[in-house]
Design a binder for these strands. Sequence first.
DNA 1: CCTACCGATCGGTAGG
DNA 2: CCTACCGATCGGTAGG
Lengths: 190, 190
Amino acid sequence: MARVGRREEILAIACRLFSQKGYHGTTIRDISEACGILSGSLYAHINTKEDLLFEITDRGAEAFLGSLEPIVKSGKTASQKLREAVKAHMHVIEANLEAATVFFHEWKALTGDRYEQIRKKRDSYERLWAAILEEGIKSGEFKQLDEKLARLLVLSVANWTYQWYRPGGKLKADEVADRFVEMILIGFQA
Amino acid sequence: MARVGRREEILAIACRLFSQKGYHGTTIRDISEACGILSGSLYAHINTKEDLLFEITDRGAEAFLGSLEPIVKSGKTASQKLREAVKAHMHVIEANLEAATVFFHEWKALTGDRYEQIRKKRDSYERLWAAILEEGIKSGEFKQLDEKLARLLVLSVANWTYQWYRPGGKLKADEVADRFVEMILIGFQA
DNA sequence: CCTACCGATCGGTAGG
DNA sequence: CCTACCGATCGGTAGG
């Protein structure tokens, strides 16, 4: 029989496996065996393998969007917003490293409408960052940067985090974010 | 019969497909059909599917290493080295976008010794960047940065490029590199 | 490079 | 959630 909370357990296991071996590199049997059930039994909980990928990536997208929206809407300065945005982004990755890895690395394996849904949410997320940078450039708080390139720089740093950050290392996500923002704001040059 | 240059053609086609659909998402039949031959015929040119992935990623690794080594060894200032290093990195990506995508996105699908070989070359590449940053920090040319975090920042920007850069866009790789380095050196803050 | 094929495994289903 | 299974496809091979 279907256990209560079993679906969440399956999602967590699929998330771990997708993050380690990729979506196409993970089989239904990999997931079911890690759950301690047979492959056919998985279909009491899901309809297709892609359901798992979509739910993982969609939750990821919502986590990033939900953490950034209030920051953009706040009345703080662009520098403060930038700092908090990077922190929020790092926090989402820290709290859901496997899901973040799947979100960044595997979302293109989605097909059709689901691919489009996630693509749109990624676009929305980028627009929120654009708003912060545009504000800082317009107000004179930042230099006269090319907004798109400045955004690409910040998002590169933020998005690459899942590739190297491991919870339990020397630095907490919060400290990493602070140091990155400091370097971005004041530059390397002495 | 095996055509002259056929192997290079197969590599280029595999590279394109791996970059579009991922290594595990691409089948031997996808590759052979794109070549206009049958799947079994592919094995007149290769031994395994993983051979293709290894050759693509290994060439990628060599391209990055080969372009950075002379810059690190040159007698220029750390800032100049940093600028040229970012440019060289972007040039490699620009000239081999599909291979770069496979190199960054699919190398973890390699197994055993081949995984280790590429991992080591990636480590070597990072050490070359570390040398530039250490030099700049030690000489006082850069601020007293945490070398590892500074390196992560620069490499995040450089490595993320394959995700968004498309040749034929408004900016050439060289200009993008220049602007990124400028922002990294002098910062956003007005 | 083709013909012809192999065993293994894939995602998924019917019925209980 | 198991038993039992499906057709399709996978990477790869033997022989020419």
